[in-house]
Structures are given as structure tokens and as C-alpha cells.
Design a protein around this nucleic acid. Structure first.
Lengths: 190, 190
DNA sequence: TTATTTATGTGACCTACATCACATTTCAGG
DNA sequence: CCTGAAATGTGATGTAGGTCACATAAATAA
């Protein structure tokens, strides 16, 4: 399937655009490819894009002072990724985004997103709903963090995204769950 | 300050509306008062409103199977509160909202919010940005949960919201931080 | 293929925080 | 102003999960 079709199908789940409107919408995106391991957003960068994943897997993550990594999100096809704090506030990136596998993405600059939101009311609607879904999902994850132990969170993750298990190194799964890789290893060998 | 002025000042930080537009916007809100301890949204309720706090303090929280409480958010004046999952999905409430103190709020039904978003482009813009801020804040809190220990999170909370310390029972602060009340007590007596 | 890194498994031990028990203080209602 | 009910403090003890150390396996480069 073509990038344009993938995006169209995704957007159509929330809003209805005429073909002309969608052509215009799509014209603001730039197609890019990245290699496995490549950095898309690095800490300290100026952030001006968000990324719509066409193929492959990204991760957005934070590195603390002890060089320990915490994964905020895995991004799979039709998901969006960026450092949304930096993107909306204009501050430098504190969150990194890089490629777990080779990946194809569509880039949308913050400027163009705001332009599209201004020019196409439905576009603004789309981005409101997308953000809202992200908000609710993050809140659920926060609750799960407070409420459940590591084993429970591990099972939850696998139930929700079975594909991750085969594609993503266990280290990264551990970083997502907020446990050490040793603990994760013990969890699923029991 | 009047409810209308409080909301206007709040909304003006993100968007510009003419007086007529704002009058129309405001006409969709309903003023309500609640007593300390009163439930605004209870688990299992049908949720059709979100609440803009004019005065007082609310909390939104989740109760797990062991009857343990987890606080998602304290809502203070000019903050919004609801069960946003239930509100957007139409499902029953899993998150409760109640009053820590006597409170005045403005209620906006989900229907009216969507109506306003449809009729006033700037309105949609406002709600998109508000949600985005919530999203980023929740993501930061999630990171803090993974990264920092209870003491660090405690100091972070007090630095950000010093007023909470005097108004909100320590139990609730503990529930927000995700530690037992005993542990919290030990943290700040050392 | 082999060499060299990088990911994973597993034991021993440590620590932050939970839980339970009970004392003490604070507060709201009569 | 008293009185019972919450809220808070504090000790003793348990446990999930961290950290360190090293073995093994898998992936990537040469």
C-alpha cells in the first residue's frame, strides 16, 4: 500500500475529507526512510516534526543521569511519534526517538500541522481526537504503573501488542515496563 | 470574580474570541456547587460532563480490587476534570471524581463540547491545546514514576503545588505519589 | 566462516517500600 | 466543650525488585 493510502485510511477513521482536501492535507507530509538504530530525534535537538509511521518500529525514550533508559512509547505502523513537549513548547528535546527496525515515516512539521489545523477545521478535529487518545492511553498506563506489579504489566503489554515480543529486544521491553532486564528475564521464566 | 470572567480569562490564554462568540461559548456551561466529600462522578456512572473548577479542590481517582485508592489528578481552580476515557468512549466511569473541599464548577456536556468544536473553529483549537497539555503533563508524570523514587516525587509535587500541602490530607498526597501513607510520613520526617 | 560485540540467563545479596499493629493527634458533629 | 471518628506517627517485619557478577547465547562485522 502507498504512503498516501495508509495515511488516508488512518485519517478516515476519525474524519471525512474530500479527495481535494486530503490531497492538500497530504501535500504537507514528507516521506523519509531510516535505518535500524538511526536517531530521529536526539536529546537537545530542536524539534520541528512529528512522525507518522508507515512501516517498521520506532521507540521514544528518556535517558536519565545514570544513563538508564525509560521507554515512553513504541511506535508501530499508523502510530505517531515525537517529543510532544518540545514540539509544542519550542524547548529542546528531552525525549529521544530512534528506530528499532528499518522504518518509513511521513514527517509533518509543527508549522504545517498548525497551518492545516487553521485551514481545515476537520484537520484540527482529527488532531484533537488523536491527542485525546494518547492522553487516555498514557493515563491508563500511569494507573497500571501505580496499581500493578511488573508481572501484571508484562502480561498486559503482551496481550495488547503480541508482535512486540518477537521484534523488540527484551531489554527494551524491560525499559518500557520500568523494571531491570534481569527482573524481566525472571518474570517470564516462571 | 464571576464564573464567566474566570472562564474567559482561562480561555483567552489559548485563543481569541469576540465577546459575542464567548457569550455563546459560555452559554453552554452550567454553574454548580458541591459540598466537601460529595461525589461528582462515581464508578459505573454514565459520564456526560466535564468540569471546569472555579473554586475549591477536586480529585480524580481510581479504586482497585483491594479498595486501594490511586489519585490521577488534583484539580484546582481553572483546571478541568472528568473521566476522559468514559467521556470520549461512552463507556461507564472507571475513574471517580469528588470534592476535597467545597467547590464551584462549570459543567460542559460532551455533546455541547462537540457542538462548540463544530461551530467555533477556535473552540476546537482550544480543546486540542488543552488536551495536549494534559497529555504532556501525564507523560512527564509517568516518566517521573519510572525514574524517581518516592522522596523525589514528593519534593517535585510540593515544589509544583505548594498549596496542596496545607489543604490536602497526607493520605491523598500518598495516593497521588503511589506510596503508602506510612512511607510518606517517614519521608518528610527525615 | 570466525571474531567481536551485544543480548540474555541466573545466582547472591541489598534496599526501598509495603504491610500490620498500635499509639497519638486532629477534627467534625452534637 | 466534649466525644467518637478520622488522620497521622512510628516500630517490627516481609517482599518485590534492584544491583553486581559472571556465564551463555545470539547477532553483526570482517
Amino acid at each position: 500500500m502507498q504512503p498516501k493510502e495508509i495515511l488516508k485510511e488512518h485519517v478516515s477513521k476519525t474524519i471525512t475529507l474530500t479527495d481535494e482536501q486530503f490531497d492538500y492535507f497530504f501535500s504537507h507530509f514528507t516521506y523519509k526512510t531510516f535505518k535500524k538504530g538511526q536517531t530521529i530525534i536526539g536529546e537537545g535537538d530542536k524539534v520541528d516534526c512529528e512522525y507518522f509511521v508507515l512501516s517498521g518500529y520506532l521507540k521514544s525514550f528518556f535517558i536519565n543521569d545514570d544513563m538508564k533508559m525509560f521507554i515512553l512509547q513504541f511506535a508501530m505502523p499508523t502510530w505517531w511519534a515525537s517529543d510532544y513537549n518540545a514540539l509544542y513548547s519550542g524547548e529542546r528535546a528531552t525525549v529521544n526517538v530512534d528506530c528499532i527496525t528499518d522504518a518509513e515515516v511521513l514527517c509533518l512539521t509543527s508549522q504545517d500541522r498548525e497551518k492545516l489545523c487553521r485551514e481545515i477545521h476537520e484537520g484540527e478535529h482529527f488532531f484533537r481526537w488523536r491527542t485525546n487518545k494518547g492522553y487516555v492511553a498514557t493515563q491508563k498506563r500511569l494507573l497500571s504503573f501505580m496499581n500493578n506489579d511488573a508481572k501484571h504489566r508484562y502480561e498486559e503489554l503482551l496481550a495488547q501488542y503480541p508482535t512486540l515480543y518477537n521484534i523488540v529486544p527484551k531489554q527494551l521491553i524491560a525499559s518500557y515496563l520500568g523494571v531491570s532486564r534481569e527482573t524481566l528475564s525472571r518474570l517470564y521464566h516462571s
